[in-house]
């Protein structure tokens, strides 16, 4: 099952990159996909059919525009701080807790945090995320967690259960 999914995904990527449907291209693509699936199929998660759960795909579709909105806001925020003559920054590294289980969920959360306003994930140790924050507004751990991770976790929890 893992190998099959890997083969199909690799073949789709091949089609997107070559963008031609001549028989020779398709034959080469099938051959290479099978070779890659046999060698590297093990790195896929244990239950790959969960990827096609419609509920998860729906929440993923909700998450993408939500994330893009925060990303644009983050950039305007950074641009303001960079251009401002006094550079209004108050940097520091804070520790927040995540309730997400699973490595892929945590990876998605850490990447989202890196690309959103004023925060950059430095390390993940178990359930603790260490975040470099360019403008520390509060010293209270509860409030820090609320400001940085809660709004992403709400949706990510539904994608990566």
């Amino acid at each position: 099952m893992k190998q099959l999914l890997s083969c199909v995904l690799t073949f789709l990527l091949w089609l997107a990159l070559t963008w031609s449907l001549t028989p020779s291209d398709i034959a080469a693509g099938v051959f290479i996909s099978i070779v890659i699936a046999v060698i590297l199929g093990d790195i896929y998660p244990e239950h790959p059919q969960a990827v096609f759960d419609p509920k998860r795909l729906f929440w993923l579709a909700v998450y993408v525009p939500y994330f893009l909105y925060f990303m644009v806001r983050a950039n305007l925020d950074v641009a303001y701080r960079v251009i401002h003559p006094d550079m209004p920054i108050r940097p520091g590294i804070v520790k927040v807790k995540t309730t997400l289980r699973g490595d892929i969920g945590k990876l998605a959360l850490a990447n989202s945090i890196t690309l959103t306003p004023g925060t950059l994930s430095v390390d993940i140790v178990g359930d603790d995320l260490y975040i470099h924050w360019i403008n520390v507004t509060t010293m209270d751990p509860e409030e820090q967690t609320g400001t940085i991770v809660s709004h992403f976790e709400r949706i990510l929890r539904r994608i990566f259960r």
């Binding site: 990303m71 950074v78 960079v82 920054i89 940097p91 360019i134």
Partner: peptide
């Protein structure tokens, strides 16, 4: 890239430069 030059330490630089 302006942020990369202006900001004070490597963490802030990485932050601004990566996002923008």
């Amino acid at each position: 890239c302006i942020g990369l030059v202006r900001l004070p330490d490597v963490y802030n630089r990485a932050q601004a430069a990566t996002k923008c």
